[in-house]
C-alpha cells in the first residue's frame, strides 16, 4: 500500500436511510502515484466534491478505505484528522479562500505556524515560497489588493507550505481567465513533477486535461469506463461519443447532443467551419480517458 501516495479501496458514501437513501459515491477505487496528476471530471451532482471531501479527510466513507501515505484515514479517530489535513494534504479552492484580514505573507505563514513551526521560521519559509511563485513584491498586500491569478498563487503557496504529499484542487481555474488559468495549471504541473507531489484536481475545465496524467470521468457516483468525449459543433456541449447522435460531412464524423443540433449543422455545415477546425484537434475532441 505504500507504493502509492493515495489508495482508495471500494469506497461508498450514502446519505439518508431506507427509502430516502442516496448513494453519492458507489464502490470507487483509485490509486494515485507519487507525482501523478489526476483530473476528475463529470457533470454536476456526479459525486466529485463528495469524493474530494473523503480523500481530503473531511468526510468518512460509509464503506471502503482510504490509505494516505500508508495510513488508513477511515480507521482514524475524528480528532486525528485535522492534523492529517494540516500536514499531509494541501487544499486549493476555486474562489481562493484567503483570509481577508491577513497579508499575503501571513496567509501562508499561519498554516506553517499552526503545524508547529516557529513564527520566524514560518514567515521566512512563506516568504521564500511566495517569492518563488513570483509574489515577492506582494508579501505585505492584503488579498483584496491582488488579482485573481495572484490570489490563486497565494493559495498554491499555502497548500505547499507544509510540504504535503497530496494536493487537492477544487475547480482551481474556475475564477480565472483562460490565460491565467493555464499559467496556474502549468505551475501546478511543474510543482507536481519537480517536487513529486501528487495532485488531484476536480474540474469542469476541459483545458486542464492538457496537464493531467490521467483523466477520470465520474458520473452517478461511479467512474465510467473508457469514455470518449466529443464536443457538439453547434452548441459546444461536451458529450459522450457513444451516446451522441452523429452525422458525417466531408468524410468526417460529427457528434451532436440532439437531433436539433444535428439538423442545424446539416442545414449549413460550412457555418460551423470554425468549430470543425477546433474539434478536429485530437486533444480537444477525441480525448481518450483510461480508467482504473
Amino acid at each position: 500500500m505504500t507504493n502509492f501516495a493515495l489508495q482508495v479501496n471500494g469506497i461508498t458514501k450514502r446519505y439518508g436511510s431506507g427509502t430516502t437513501e442516496v448513494a453519492a459515491i458507489s464502490d470507487i477505487s483509485l490509486t494515485v502515484a507519487q507525482g501523478e496528476i489526476v483530473l476528475i471530471m463529470g457533470p454536476s451532482g456526479s459525486g466529485k466534491t463528495t469524493l474530494l471531501l473523503m480523500v481530503g479527510a473531511l468526510l468518512k466513507p460509509t464503506e471502503g478505505s482510504i490509505w494516505l501515505d500508508g495510513l488508513d484515514l477511515t480507521s482514524l479517530n475524528e480528532r486525528a484528522l485535522p492534523d492529517i489535513r494540516l500536514r499531509q494534504l494541501g487544499f486549493i479552492f476555486q474562489d481562493f479562500k484567503l483570509l481577508s484580514a491577513l497579508t499575503v505573507l501571513d496567509n501562508v505563514a499561519i498554516v506553517a505556524e499552526l503545524a508547529g513551526m516557529t513564527t520566524k521560521a514560518a514567515r521566512r519559509k512563506a516568504a521564500d515560497l511566495l517569492t518563488e511563485l513570483g509574489l515577492g513584491e506582494r508579501l505585505t498586500f492584503l488579498p483584496e489588493k491582488l488579482s485573481g491569478g495572484e490570489k490563486q498563487r497565494v493559495a498554491v503557496a499555502r497548500a505547499l507550505i507544509n510540504e504535503p504529499r497530496i494536493i487537492l484542487a477544487d475547480e482551481p481555474t474556475a475564477n480565472l481567465d483562460s490565460k491565467i488559468g493555464l499559467q496556474i495549471m502549468r505551475l501546478l504541473r511543474h510543482i507536481a513533477k519537480e517536487q513529486g507531489r501528487s495532485l488531484i484536481i476536480v474540474s469542469h475545465d476541459q483545458r486542464i486535461k492538457d496537464i493531467a496524467d490521467r483523466v477520470l470521468w465520474l458520473e452517478d457516483g461511479r467512474f465510467k469506463d473508457m469514455v470518449t468525449m466529443v464536443t457538439d459543433p453547434v452548441c459546444g456541449m461536451a458529450l459522450e461519443r457513444d451516446k451522441a447522435t452523429s452525422a458525417v460531412w466531408d468524410g468526417q464524423a460529427f457528434y451532436f447532443c440532439s437531433e436539433g443540433c444535428r439538423h442545424e449543422f446539416l442545414d449549413n455545415p460550412a457555418r460551423f467551419q470554425t468549430h470543425q477546425d477546433v474539434i478536429s484537434s485530437p486533444s480537444a475532441i477525441h480525448q481518450e480517458h483510461s480508467l482504473d
Binding site: D83, R85, L89, F91, K97, L99, L114
Partner: peptide, 18 residues
C-alpha cells in the same frame, strides 16, 4: 462575518480550540 474563514481554517486542519 468571518464564519467562512473560520470554516476554511477548520478544513485546512486548524483545531477549533485555536
Amino acid at each position: 462575518a468571518r464564519r467562512r474563514e473560520y470554516g476554511l481554517l477548520k478544513a485546512l486542519g486548524v483545531r477549533s480550540s485555536f
